[in-house]
Design a binder for these strands. Structure first.
Lengths: 150, 150
DNA sequence: GCGGTTTTGTTGAGCGTTCAACTACATGGG
DNA sequence: CCCATGTAGTTGAACGCTCAACAAAACCGC
């Protein structure tokens, strides 16, 4: 007994798929072009930059950036090679590693941010009315809660 | 003169990022587990299944599935190896290739569809009110038009 | 404390995507 | 007709992600 989508739902799903794919692809390409990093790496740098002391345990960083531990491990290896992040031992847990945003990493992020924010504004917010922005926020928050809850 | 995001916009953007990432990751993982293919490949099969004669020119298929030509080329190579798609020469354009959904491919798609649709319903539509579904449709359609227009 | 379980983080292989380069064919102006 | 330009599709390398396997340390009940 499959609960198929009615035609309204189908239209919604298709539109959502297209819009989110094109939006993400566009922002990802812009970021790669202008800052030399994919959006996932940008997210990691942002999370670190907002953390106290610009540092986080790998697990917390993974959670914050919405990444798997494995993915983060690979990513931080690259970011470390680029000189944007450093790893340190965790004093309270000998298994732990602390990822730390370097000054160079912070500078790179600061240089990339304006262009990226401009892209988000141009490609997303400029197209929507204030009411729609509000709707999108409620929908997204509901959805995020629903998805992480189950 | 960067037009930064105000705190409402920032909250919206973060929520959107999280929700869409988790939603897509979840559906992708389910599809990989249950049907042995990533969501992008599923999309390709769907597009072929809805095309007249279950076939499309590579370029049209790329457009329909929201894929680059290169990506599609690699993907169809895999789908062909799996026996789900066949390639044929195009009679009217000797550069052209026609991708054709095989019976086996159609059967695989038919087997995968109920589970996937159920996932879309559970993870997306079940969380939203009818009004929100309508809002999401309008937002997505506006966005898709805005993005492909520029 | 001891032994099983959980948690933390890494690793390597396999896969999918991107990008640039390339071939082959079509098209249109002179 | 011919050459320049554009279009269709493929290819290989580099890169990022996923998954399963793993080592090391922490935790916990007894």
């Amino acid at each position: 007994m499959t609960r198929w989508l009615d035609s309204d739902e189908q239209r919604t799903w298709r539109a959502y798929l297209t819009a989110s794919r094109v939006l993400m692809d566009t922002l990802d390409r812009e970021l790669q072009r202008d800052a030399g990093m994919p959006h996932a790496y940008y997210e990691i740098l942002v999370q670190l930059s907002e953390a106290p002391g610009r540092q986080l345990r790998m697990s917390e960083l993974a959670q914050a950036a919405g990444s798997s531990r494995s993915r983060l491990s690979h990513a931080v290896a690259r970011l470390e090679a680029a000189g944007w992040v450093r790893r340190e031992e965790c004093p309270t847990d000998r298994r732990g590693q602390i990822a730390l945003l370097t000054d160079e990493g912070f500078a790179t992020l600061a240089a990339a941010a304006p262009g990226h924010v401009e892209g988000v504004r141009r490609h997303l917010f400029d197209a929507l009315s204030p009411a729609q922005v509000d709707q999108l926020r409620r929908i997204s928050e509901t959805l995020a809660e629903h998805l992480t809850g189950s």
